[in-house]
Design a protein around this nucleic acid. Structure first.
Lengths: 361, 361
DNA sequence: TTGTATGCGTTATCAT
DNA sequence: ATGATAACGCATACAA
């Protein structure tokens, strides 16, 4: 292979192909400046103990001078570790998911892992697409909210041996590792509280149940509890709609205008809806809690400031995020098998306030 | 170089080095199964038009059968495009930033770009660290909230020629591309509104101004307006603290207990603080707005449901996110120069409600 | 239209 | 402790 001198394009490279020059500073530039091999530069950042102090110093100086830091794609390719984790949530518009992301992000960042976020908008198909995109990115761990997802989603996670956790919801007999609270039990507690106060006629105003196992579990918890007491929710008192104050308002108006006996208690799917019910009650001149008891869920900061203050349940969603990240890190560290059936249950705490009281019927 | 038959380790590879086997399905596996070259498989996913229909079909079948999709690290390295964008926000706990992230995420996802999120917790040093981490990941574009960041942050972005935008805040004479609203002007508008109602004595309850150009601009807007009218805020009526209902409550108590003339209007840094002021006013028996006018900022869903309903300003933060992503995509598409001084101003709209009224002094 | 042969920036293996 | 160099998985210039 003659290295012909009359070929200017071969002057700087060993082949006759043009080198794709990206212009950026790379590890070998640092190695050259520091007068060491590329392997040594790499060691300085990955196994610093294996490098003598003065060489390490030289390399760090060179890196600083050239303003170099390792390229993540190169690292990922060579080490088969991406240092990326993913989370799929329904929406960022809900404070509970936002704070869960916040908790995970902080815990992962402390270990040098970047969290990539995906929103499914409550659509299982979007969730599946997002998970596939994250697998392509080489996520090392994943979290998904709830377990109402296509089986292909969990299949893909298993196939690629990516440790994952189902968050927000906790179910003892789930096939997945769950980190969250028991939605069913939480609403059993709410229903029992109201029944204990003497209520016998209930309405339920709740978010869409479709594709949402958490909300389904809540409704089931209410139904099971009432049934145990020989009670039931009349179909016209079971309202499903968006998670807004406006929907709560519309619910109460519909319930109050409906023919037949009015409920003495309304169980809401969350605080937004409950606030709407409370506000509409004021407009309609309904006395809370004497004429009607109302419960929410989430314990937003505003809940205790309302008049009457809202009885609701508090869940530490930031903690759910933190615990989830911690669990996944433990799996990555080999402290648990990849797809062991583990999990943490976080408790929802009933906050008794003024919006619920004894039934006056 | 004799290919000795008695060397079993060389049977499958062309060298005498052990191949690092990661066990995953790769592009060449698909090529082999489809009976085509690796280049053709790559083309099927990157330049499908350049591949004949039946070959494309074969490749897609093979990929499906092997459950293969391209590895992002490999793509990034080979194409020097990461398909990643980043955003640094102060915190996810604030709805306005959460919805901005939401808007960006949706717009980027529609173009196959993954959004990576970083939270600075209002700490410039953390923001810098996060930006560097994102540059290492090869982000193709970045958004940061506000411009109160270390110069090194913007230097790094420029050095790596990464298009970026400053969001949430908009300032005509900023050296950066800004997408947001004019915090100064917004608070001028609030102050003018109150002055127009006859108010002359003001208190201000606002978030920490340190390292926060948005809040500083708001305070400056208030001060400038009052000064233009020959007025000023007394030091004991300028309170700075956390963005919570509790802080708002403490503010009003402190203001009401302070010696000297009481203000007839309180301008708050956001709705949370304003809600606290309103709640505390009710507890103290202060008539709103007759005895005291109160303003917020953000127009949370709850603002119009309060009694009295809160006068505040509305900003479409989801739209800010969407516009930011769109602008950055345009830059990536070459529609604008990389570091052109461009931007979009989004308008904050005053929502006049019951918490402000004529001064009765 | 399709195949061949590198190179992208880093890490890991082996040798020294 | 340090150096030389082959992977890592994919995209692309160039040849055919």
């Amino acid at each position: 292979m003659p290295d012909s001198l009359d070929s200017p394009t071969t002057a700087r490279t060993q082949t006759n192909r043009a080198r794709r020059n990206t212009g950026r500073t790379v590890l070998s530039d640092v190695a050259k400046l520091a007068g060491v091999s590329t392997a040594t530069v790499s060691r300085v950042y990955n196994e610093p103990d294996k490098v003598s102090a003065n060489v390490r110093e030289r390399v760090e100086q060179a890196a600083l001078a050239l303003n170099w830091f390792p390229n993540a794609a190169g690292r990922a390719l060579a080490s088969t570790r991406s240092h990326i984790a993913g989370i799929i949530i329904p929406t960022l518009d809900d404070q509970v998911f936002a704070s869960q992301v916040s908790g995970m992000q902080a815990a992962f960042a402390a270990r040098g892992i970047t969290l990539v976020l995906g929103c499914s908008n409550y659509d299982p198909a979007q969730a599946l697409v997002q998970v596939r995109a994250m697998l392509a990115r080489g996520v090392e761990a994943m979290a998904v909210v709830g377990e109402a997802h296509p089986p292909e989603l969990f299949d893909a996670l298993r196939l690629y041996r990516v440790p994952y956790a189902v968050t927000y919801a906790y179910r003892g007999d789930s096939p997945h590792t769950c980190i969250g609270f028991d939605n069913h039990a939480a609403y059993v507690e709410i229903a029992e509280h109201l029944i204990g106060l003497g209520h016998r006629s209930f309405a339920v105003c709740i978010q869409p149940t479709r594709d949402n196992d958490r909300v389904q579990a809540r409704v089931a918890g209410i139904r099971a509890t009432l049934e145990r007491h020989g009670l039931a929710v009349r179909p016209e008192h079971m309202l499903e709609g968006e998670s807004t104050i406006g929907f709560g308002r519309r619910c109460l108006r519909a319930i109050w205008q409906a023919p037949g006996e009015r409920p003495s208690a309304i169980i809401c799917g969350n605080d937004h809806i409950a606030i709407g019910v409370l506000r509409e009650a004021e407009d309609l001149g309904i006395a809370i809690p004497d004429e009607l008891s109302v419960t929410g869920f989430d314990d937003l900061e505003i809940a205790k400031e309302l008049r009457p203050a809202l009885t609701t349940m508090r869940v530490d969603t930031y903690e759910i995020g933190r615990l989830t990240a911690q669990h996944l890190l433990d799996v990555l560290d080999g402290k648990h098998p990849r797809h062991e059936h583990a999990g943490h249950e976080v408790h929802a705490e009933l906050q008794l306030r003024q919006s619920t009281g004894p039934c006056r019927r």
